[in-house]
Simulated assay, not measured.
Amino acid sequence: MSATLAFATPDGGMLHVRVETAIVAGWTARDRAAVDHHIEELAAIGVPAPSTVPLYYRVAASLLTQDETIEVVGEGTSGEAEPVVISDSQGRPWLTVGSDHTDRALEATSVALSKQICAKPLARAAWPLASLMERLDALTLASSVQEEEGGPFVAYQAGTLATIRPLAELIAGSPVAIDGRLPPNTAMLCGTLPVLAGGVRPARAMRLEIGDGEARLAHEYATRVLPVVA
């Protein structure tokens, strides 16, 4: 299974990628204390600690989507803003922003299954990663959530990529990396930031962005909740 994605690029063109391999990197904070904090956040909702850090979860590439609405089962899902590296058909890396939307109830049973059960929304624009390497740490990453349908968006996450392990290091550590690079037609979600306040919690809609004072990549998506039936 694969996902066909299209990204607007800074030169006004379009990048088309048929992603065949998708990875979610977890527990990627550069500061071990921040990793422990995130472990504690998730432990508060019953999620077991990881076996190692960082940890790389393989998910179906078909979960990647650029739609504005995703369907989820039940009320207990939520997302988180993440830098996403896309390797195109020639192996060139691109940066975008996405959300590792997760079933929080299932996460208490299996983190791997909780990630596989939900779509992973991505923005519709991307930047060439090579042009950003000298200022990656300065890029900001943020999200806001709408907790009730029709309600206001409130700040949920905010920080810089300096709090996440260097993307080159995460890529090189991936189990699919070849000579320190992602293979062609691969996407990797590279981890997230702690929640500002209130803990990890469900949301009906989410706004994501990554960027600097001059430009940003952004995406907004909502969830359509499907009923839980026995």
Rank of each mutant, 00 (worst) to 15 (best):
G211C: 12
V59M: 10
R207E: 12
I171G: 05
A49M: 13
V35D: 11
E169S: 15
L217D: 03
V229P: 10
I210Y: 06
Y156W: 09
E80K: 12
N185L: 13
T192K: 08
A187N: 11
G76L: 08
M206K: 03
T52W: 05
G76P: 00
T186R: 02
T69N: 04
T9D: 07
S174M: 04
G211R: 12
C118K: 05
G199N: 04
V35F: 08
K115A: 03
L132Y: 02
V53L: 06
T9I: 09
I45C: 14
D103E: 01
V229R: 14
D103N: 13
H101S: 02
S2I: 02
T186G: 03
L129V: 00
P121Q: 13
A123V: 00
R58D: 11
A108Q: 08
P194E: 10
A61W: 12
E209K: 03
R207H: 15
H16C: 08
M1N: 12
A112I: 02
L161Q: 02
S144H: 01
D11M: 01
M1V: 10
G98T: 06
G91R: 13
T109E: 09
F7G: 00
A108L: 13
L161F: 07
D137G: 07
R181T: 05
A6S: 10
R92E: 12
I23P: 03
G46T: 07
A61D: 01
T4S: 15
V228A: 07
D31F: 09
V17A: 11
A172Q: 10
E71K: 04
G150E: 05
A44S: 11
T28I: 04
